[in-house]
């Protein structure tokens, strides 16, 4: 699949077929994630794959942004201590979030290529997810990516046009 096609085809998928996602595919998604750009190449991430029904059921009520029950979740965490040690305050406050976002987009695009659908989720309670996943305090869950086989291809939500969002040389 061409990159352009994946960029266009990728949608946030919120309803999935009742079909498990093979662990090797989840590994492949994380492999794509670790090749994302990383501020100062800190690579502060840790990915937790969750496909056990019991564990997903514990996460769900603390993640209001998670629609339905996807076959798998990839929880993207970043190590804030490592970010601060290697990247200072910028590392802790900014790079920790941005690296998670770049990793998530690599997961989205790779999933698209593999015929999987994803949805990036931020509406969840970080403290609660930390408890459920037994994360050490410095490892903060930044995004949850739901993963599964899409039930249907949703309509693309509207985009602001290039003309509206782009300027040359200076604003306006």
């Amino acid at each position: 699949m061409e990159v352009w096609e994946a960029i266009f085809k990728r949608r946030s998928i919120r309803s999935f077929r009742d079909e498990p996602v093979d662990n090797n595919l989840l590994i492949k998604l994380v492999e794509a994630a670790i090749w994302a750009p990383s501020g100062s190449n800190i690579q502060p991430w840790h990915f937790i794959a969750v496909s056990c029904e019991e564990q997903k059921a514990k996460i769900k009520p603390f993640a209001p942004g998670l629609t339905g029950m996807p076959p798998a979740l990839l929880v993207i965490c970043t190590d804030l201590d490592l970010c601060e040690r290697k990247g200072g305050r910028l590392g802790r406050d900014v790079i920790s979030l941005m690296d998670a976002a770049f990793a998530a987009q690599n997961i989205n695009l790779m999933a698209c290529e593999l015929g999987l659908g994803t949805c990036v989720i931020r509406s969840f309670n970080q403290g609660a997810i930390q408890e459920i996943l037994k994360l050490p305090p410095q490892l903060v869950p930044q995004l949850i990516v739901s993963v599964g086989y899409p039930e249907r291809a949703p309509q693309a939500p509207k985009r602001r046009s290039v003309q509206e969002v782009m300027s040359w040389e200076r604003y306006g």
Binding site: A57, K60, P61, F62, A63, P64, S123, F124, N125, A128
Partner: peptide, 17 residues
Amino acid sequence: IDVFCFIITSARGCLEE
């Protein structure tokens, strides 16, 4: 019980979302 957790979590989320 899941609804209870969902409502309380949402109350917190709605402060920022």
